[in-house]
Amino acid sequence: MRLSYRRALTRALADELARDESVFLLGEDVRVGASTITSGLCRRFGPERVRDTPLSEQAFTSFATGAALAGMRPVVEFQIPSLLFLVFEQIVNHAHKFPLMTGGQCAVPVTYLVPGSGSRTGWAGQHSDHPYPLFAHVGVVTAVPATPTDAYGLLVSAIRHDDPVVVFAPAGALDVREDVDTLAPVPFGRGVVRRAGDEVTVVAVGHLVHDALAVAEDLAGQVSVEVFDPRTVYPFDLDGLLASVARTGRLVVFDDANRACGVAAEIVASVVERVRLAAPPRRVTRPDGAVLPFAPGLDRAVQPGREALTAAIHHVVKDAR
């Protein structure tokens, strides 16, 4: 079966809505499916379970928290990644903290689905953030699936999970298609080696997995590159990465978020605290404190790309030789 990333998300939502009456969908323009992800779901499941909300992100995010406290499993869709800044308080200060603050009296099983996170080319400063490191930092489960199979599997796992989960579907991955045999839940904290190699490990997050695979292919014959996709950045599969680095001895992290205090920094630190690498590791990220500018050339200039990754790979390999 040929499956696109978008339809994988739609299918995960439909399967969980059909499987579990406590699942419902909440968000802006979800009936019509303005993001294209929820298309057809209202017709099948009705407007009570596919609920359009007024433009009140803070209230409907907390509404979902309350519904989860009362036993439901809401999925909240945000059409714009930067809206997560607006509801960071509701997710972090309430949904995430309630289980601990109440001494284990409750669970808050909410899924926040962000289709089209990161640059969408031409959408400029307030629509182009990719804010997954913030959620990893505060300890909310953070999934960034790269493939249709994982988009399905991680979204299903998120909906069934008893804690809040943010699923970032990168804009750069939404057009990916692949042949799929079986679809199944994907566990959190379990990364996957997308391409085996023995000279350098590239950790790539989300859509950058595909760029990393293209670079690895380009470099075949010169450098043997292993591509590691963590799939969830929190929890992070450190054992899986350490096993890869034990084979290659070198590390590059390819992460479409700002550099300072980012996921790449955390990954590098976690590795070098434990093993001695053959060469200093490198990060390929957005610059520190970046805001994505509008003009396409400027937008591209701020995103981590294949050229920068290629240079970083050559650098760590040369350093070691």
């Binding site: 300890g139 804690d163 992070f236 899986g240 976690s270």
Partner: peptide, 19 residues
């Protein structure tokens, strides 16, 4: 101190031990 941080019993970093 961090009992009940996750209702699911999740631990944030799988493996690697304490640095």
């Amino acid at each position: 101190a961090l009992d009940h941080l996750y209702a699911s019993g999740l631990t944030g970093r799988t493996g690697g031990g304490q640095a």
